[in-house]
Nucleic acid binder design. Structure first.
Length: 522
RNA sequence: GGGCCUGUAGCUUAGUCAGGUAGAGCACCGGGCUUUUAACCCGGUGGCCGGGGGUUCGAAUCCCCCCGGGCCCGCCA
């Protein structure tokens, strides 16, 4: 059984409408890791729907979270916004200075992410957390938290092992400049929290408005109640012993709610490749990933891995295997005796495939391209026009008639991939400029004779695939070479390796003069 | 110091919750395809399941210990 289906089954034991939630702080550029947060929850949501449960999927944007520090991409002017909720500070300009527009910092980073989500078929209900504060939806829980602050303080100290000051308060009011930093609570009388800041300025915060917020551990527990959350998978940072999940559960109970079951997912790690390496600090964003990878494959990356396992996101050669694995699963038919374990595996993979579809309940077979990534990458490199790629696929029997939409999309993304830095070098077709040492080490005298003859014959050859193929065939035959050896030597000369894509196609894409010059070096 | 995840063929892994002779894919090797040598089809090699102990008729699976790898643990998310 797939993990999402397993989760749905567990959730069905609680006979209430399911509210599956993700929460992310829009403090900067979203990255591929956030997709796991989103997709883990969204797939559980879909699994619930598939199991006939009443379910909603809500993305709570932590727009009430304060700016913590001036990040590298921000100008020093942001200093004055530290401690101010992200919903109330201006978005940065490209140069890092605060903009004067109406788009908030939170929205600025959120919006492009939402666009990516649409592309992978995720349509959450968006809940801006600051609006819940503005609307007073938190007020009852804030009041309760304040009234039970001794108990909550005790929970946090016991569970997390952290020491909290005697005058700890479960609500951080915002001071005169909108920041929560350096503001101390002096008194509380519903609905007003009195405060004093570092300069001795005093004021009151109305808990029915966004005049302040609860610290994260309480905020999280409270929102479970406010939104009737039944499931919220959290990153491993929340999952550590004494982490916010462990304190959230009892705090939620103190506030009169039933907490969701603890679900913790592992991080996605970036596998460095070429100039993009984790050490250089370059991350890959969802948009960038989507320009290279078809959306269903991106979903599959998440769906195929168990929640508790690291995922290495690799835009290099592993992507070939990932994509081809996806295709294989669809065409594979298990035969023979099927053991219990095999059945488990088959069911799990079927689930992964089902949940990888961009459009829920669509037939996975509609998303297959019918050709491997590797083969397509080769054609995309040697054929400059898309039509020639389709033609080649028709000739090879991969395609009949016109290409499917998914295949067209795939070729587009393939061209992006090849054109960018993430494409694996060993899959790149590089025509040699001169005959290299590799060639000499791997070819016999007979093969060299063959190539000289071929070079000569090609001089008068009509420059199309069929003619070129015919010439190669003739030459191998005349030289009494096994075709295999003939081709092999040709690849060593052209590519510096012993094998390659269909030689006639490759050569027809080359300039005749360049080719003959190259072969003259044999 | 506390905790979480993880260790299964060269590589990526399934199977661990509900114990019953270890399944894949990639790579590799061999064969076929007499116009597709990174296409396609068929077959094959390869695992004392990290190590040790225990429970059991039987352990990759349950329990204990050890070793290796990844990660989290002020505030804040």
């Amino acid at each position: 059984m797939h993990w999402a289906d397993f989760r749905a089954q567990r959730l069905s034991e609680r006979d209430v409408p399911q509210v599956i939630v993700s929460g992310i702080t829009p403090s900067g550029e979203f990255h591929i890791g956030h997709l796991r947060e989103i997709l883990t929850a969204e797939m559980i949501h879909r699994a619930c729907l598939d199991a006939g449960l009443d379910s909603r999927y809500v993305f709570i944007v932590d727009s009430m979270d304060p700016l913590r520090r001036v990040y590298d991409f921000l100008s020093p002017e942001y200093e004055k916004y530290i401690g101010v909720p992200l919903a109330y500070i201006p978005s940065p300009n490209p140069d890092g200075t605060p903009s004067t527009g109406s788009v908030s910092y939170a929205e600025y980073f959120l919006n492009p992410f939402l666009e990516s989500l649409r592309e992978i078929g995720v349509f959450p209900e968006i809940e801006m957390n600051h609006e819940a504060y503005e609307d007073g939806r938190f007020s009852e829980k804030i009041d309760q938290a304040i009234c039970n602050r001794k108990e909550i303080r005790e929970i946090i100290m016991t569970v997390s092992g952290r020491e909290l000051p005697e005058d700890w308060f479960p609500y951080s009011p915002r001071g005169p400049n909108g920041s929560m930093d350096g503001v101390k609570v002096t008194d509380y009388e519903y609905p007003f929290v009195s405060w004093v800041n570092e300069d001795g300025v005093t004021g009151t915060a109305d808990i029915r408005k966004a005049d302040g917020k609860m610290p994260w551990r309480i905020d999280w527990a409270a929102r479970w109640i406010i939104h009737q959350v039944t499931c919220e998978p959290a990153g491993k940072d929340h999952g550590a012993a004494g982490g916010s999940f462990d304190t959230g559960i009892p705090i939620c109970e103190v506030l009169g709610g039933i907490p969701p079951e603890k679900i913790v997912y592992e991080w996605i790690q970036l596998k460095g490749m070429g100039p993009m390496s984790s050490s250089s600090g370059v991350t890959i964003g969802p948009m960038e990933a989507l320009s290279l990878v078809p959306p269903e494959i991106l979903r599959y990356v998440i769906a195929r891995s168990k929640i508790g396992r690291h995922i290495e996101f690799d835009t290099g050669s592993a992507l070939f295997e990932m994509a081809d694995e996806y295709e294989r699963l669809l065409s594979r038919v298990e035969t023979g005796e099927i053991s219990k374990r095999m059945q488990t595996r088959i069911d799990t993979r079927k689930g992964a495939l089902r949940l990888s579809q961009v459009v829920r309940n669509s037939d996975p077979s509609d998303s297959i391209a019918g050709v491997s990534f590797r083969h397509l990458s080769m054609l995309a490199q040697i054929k400059s026009s898309d039509e020639e790629v389709w033609e080649s696929l028709r000739n090879s029997g991969h395609l009949s008639g016109n290409p499917s939409d998914s295949l067209v999309v795939r070729l587009t993304k393939m061209r992006n991939w090849i054109g960018g830095s993430h494409f694996p070098e060993d899959a790149r077709i590089i025509i040699q400029s001169v005959i290299g040492d590799d060639f000499r080490e791997n070819t016999s005298e007979e093969q060299k004779i063959f190539l000289r003859r071929l070079s000569k014959s090609l001089e008068d050859c009509e420059w199309n695939q069929d003619s070129i193929r015919e010439v190669i065939r003739e030459c191998t035959s005349i030289c009494e070479l096994v075709p295999r050896d003939g081709f092999s030597s040709l690849y060593w000369a052209l590519l510096g390796r012993g094998h390659g894509p269909r030689a006639s196609a490759l050569i027809s894409e080359m300039d005749k003069r360049v080719l003959i010059d190259l072969l003259s070096g044999v």
